[in-house]
Design a protein around this nucleic acid. Structure first.
Length: 116
DNA sequence: GGTGTGACAATGG
DNA sequence: GCCATTGCCACAC
């Protein structure tokens, strides 16, 4: 029974990513690396992005638009259906975006390891 | 069980 | 501040 137990949650890692992403405060942004480090997989920052890629398979809405790369670049905007959807959502929260890059990213940066 | 891949991060120029 | 290269882990086939 022990070996079959984990079979129920094959996407445990993804679940964690979604959970942290939902906890991002309004008007704040974070990076994939920060989430990865918070989950204990600092070197799997790419997996965080991939996990969000599968967020469409989730019944719950995930504010993936608040997650950007270390440079504050909206690398995943293309996965929102429309190329401008991500930027629109960020601007809607008061976040200024220029050239697909978050302005004052360091100020708006939200570190789950510290804040959470 | 190996191979390919990905919404990244860190470093150096 | 920007561009190019390398390393990295987890997942699908």
């Amino acid at each position: 029974m022990p070996k079959s137990l984990k079979q129920s949650k094959p996407d445990d890692f993804f679940e964690q990513v979604y959970e942290v992403t939902r906890k991002i405060p309004y008007g704040r942004v974070t990076s994939y690396g920060a989430i990865a480090r918070f989950l204990g997989t600092a070197r799997s920052a790419r997996m965080v992005g991939w996990a969000l890629n599968a967020c469409h398979s989730r019944p719950l809405h995930v504010p993936a638009h608040r997650v950007v790369n270390r440079q504050g670049l909206l690398t995943g905007k293309m996965h929102f259906g429309t190329p401008t959807a991500m930027q629109q959502l960020l601007e809607n929260e008061g976040i200024r975006v220029m050239n697909d890059r978050v302005v004052n990213f360091r100020k708006l940066f939200w570190d789950p390891c510290k804040e959470l």
